[in-house]
Design a protein around this nucleic acid. Structure first.
Lengths: 357, 357
DNA sequence: TTGAAAGCGATACCAC
DNA sequence: GTGGTATCGCTTTCAA
């Protein structure tokens, strides 16, 4: 246990036992390459010398394998844990990763222009990357590609050469829109997290909606629009409000933008359940009977949505994660870049009902 | 972009530009060490050759820094994302980590005896470890220590030489116990996740309770016991039931063990909010008026607890995480091993009330 | 079985 | 500014 002096290395142990480094290395990595006795002696010497086994970094370098996959988010890392949808996805990835003894490296990545987004990506010791909520032109995206490691994204990618696993955002959102239209709603509001940039809340103009750099957001808005316009609703009459961030409370506050005005909408479409739950809170505060006075639909079907009896569009987040993980762990040999769209489904519960007269 | 041939290295680029490796290295790592022109030329050559910057692993090896900290759980990795308490803690760690551009490596670690728990720890390229829910004698624990990296645990450690940040489990649980006793409850049940091992549900004997290898569980049980015995309740009359795992639905099922019997308890103490919420579900199913017919108290004060009006003991999970992260990122120089206990607080809401007659 | 030698890809130090 | 040189700690042929 000599905690003093230079840290013990493989060599130190080899010398102490009187064998070569190869043998010590084998003692750890290939037990079948030497006899049990010797192996024991080596371990004992190691213990005595305070050597805890081959250095992880050196081993990675030599082997060319990191034993971890990187998860890249644009949202702050802590956000990744805050949203139940996100958590569901991560669980999926985690499941397949842990099955193969692979670690998950969460890589913080400030939004474009917001500090150093490259260092963490550069220094990530991983065997592959999973991109998640990384907007179109993000500078780090190119860097990640350049690293030449297996890569998969869950964002509708601008680049068809990147493997993708996700859902048909547009068609899925359309399900919710059609449901609302079918119930007779014509005055509709939409709640989004943010269009122009994080933190900015309030109504969003049409231009802003189209300019959003988040493909899934654009896709969902398009889906709502498809459905509503088909039902004869003028999209410019639809109030699109940004909560500023994807949080229940932010959404509850932002809901004032359409709840506290003269011509209150009879239905609200939220592009995520967390936002929808916030709208529910806001309605409750104002004594509105959800499902009668006003209808609310979400997206994702997070666990909480079920409890709140929220009508929503279910997407298989866990499955998405597992698939993404698998794609990274065992990259398919084929030429064709995998582009997988998982099925979604409208789940009608108690928060939507016929439009009040 | 020559995707064919050997992967480009620093050397390749140096040769192409006609400079030494040092210069190329500096171009990436120390921009002030060479003139802008040359730097541009180097980058251009790099781009042309498909070189995306210094290899992360090699750089880590040479620099002796990994740029990540390891989070070690015994529960399956996916569990880490499932429990809101756990998520709160992780968010805390993530906050401080991302502030310094450090990644978080989630390390899967099967419970003792359940597969290979050492490989992942061995191969983890990190600058320090944070242990979380790792039971007393876990084999990997020793290995982690042996790696000689900064280390912090949130489990009441058997080993006072490991930095610790947590709460006084026993005193905190006692708060809940006293609250229940004060309300006049004498027939009490306790819901735990698992004592003997994961997956095993049902009543737990006294011996099993004491034998649990999870220090926080033991601490909380001791706290409940302190309070109840002080109020004259015989601990052996307290039905301790294991849900088998820390999940809302498992708890709801296991609640049958005390809910569907002759002498139903008038109060239930759950060692975590997730379990408490499950008990709430079970009560609702049976048409019991929580807070009147039966009282339920949890532990943690996760976000969901507030919404459910659950009486619970609040612990500062985010703060715990931030502190742990900081301890790892800037290990204190002092001799003294930091052992921090954060304050907790009883939060009385609507799920507890006077014992029915 | 065991050992010697050749890297894995990069960075730090030190003269020039 | 720049370019050698040593080294980081290990794994892997390949021959003995």
């Amino acid at each position: 246990m000599d905690s003093r002096g230079k840290r013990a290395t493989l060599q130190t142990v080899a010398d102490a036992v009187g064998v070569s480094r190869t043998t010590v290395s084998n003692a750890y990595g290939r037990p079948d390459q030497l006899n049990k006795d010797l192996r024991e002696r080596i371990f004992e010497a190691a213990r005595r010398l305070g050597y805890s086994g081959p250095d992880a970094t050196a081993r990675s370098l030599r082997r060319g394998r990191a034993g971890a996959i990187g998860l890249v988010f644009t949202e702050t890392l802590s956000y990744a844990f805050a949203d139940p949808y996100s958590v569901g996805f991560l669980r999926g990835v985690a499941e397949v990763a842990e099955a193969s003894g692979t670690g998950l490296l969460l890589i913080p990545m400030p939004p474009a222009g917001g500090g150093d987004s490259e260092t963490a990506v550069r220094n990530a010791v991983v065997d592959g990357f999973c991109l998640y909520c990384v907007p179109k032109g993000h500078p780090a995206k190119e860097l990640i590609r350049a690293r030449g490691l297996p890569l998969v994204t869950t964002d509708e990618s601008d680049d068809p050469s990147i493997p993708y696993v996700g859902i048909d955002e547009r068609a899925s959102a359309r399900l919710a829109g059609e449901h609302i239209a079918r119930l007779g709603h014509r005055r509709v509001a939409v709640m989004v997290d943010h269009v122009v940039g994080p933190g900015v809340s309030g109504p969003a103009s049409l231009d802003e909606q189209l300019a959003s750099d988040c493909a899934d957001l654009r896709g969902r808005l398009a889906g709502y629009r498809d459905a509503l316009e088909e039902a004869g609703v003028d999209w410019s009459s639809v109030r699109v409000v940004a909560a500023g961030r994807n949080s229940r409370s932010a959404s509850a506050s932002a809901a004032a933008h359409f709840l506290d005005v003269a011509e209150r909408p009879t239905a609200v479409l939220a592009i995520g359940d967390v936002l929808a739950l916030g709208v529910l809170d806001a309605c409750e505060q104002r004594g509105l009977a959800v499902g009668r006075d006003i209808s609310v639909a979400g997206f994702d079907d997070v666990p909480e949505a079920g409890r709140a009896r929220l009508t929503t569009v279910r997407q298989p987040m866990g499955e998405k994660g597992r698939l993404a993980g698998r794609l990274l762990l065992e990259p398919p040999e084929e030429e064709k870049v995998p582009r997988i769209k998982l099925p979604t489904e409208l789940v009608v519960r108690a928060t939507t009902g016929p439009a009040p007269h």
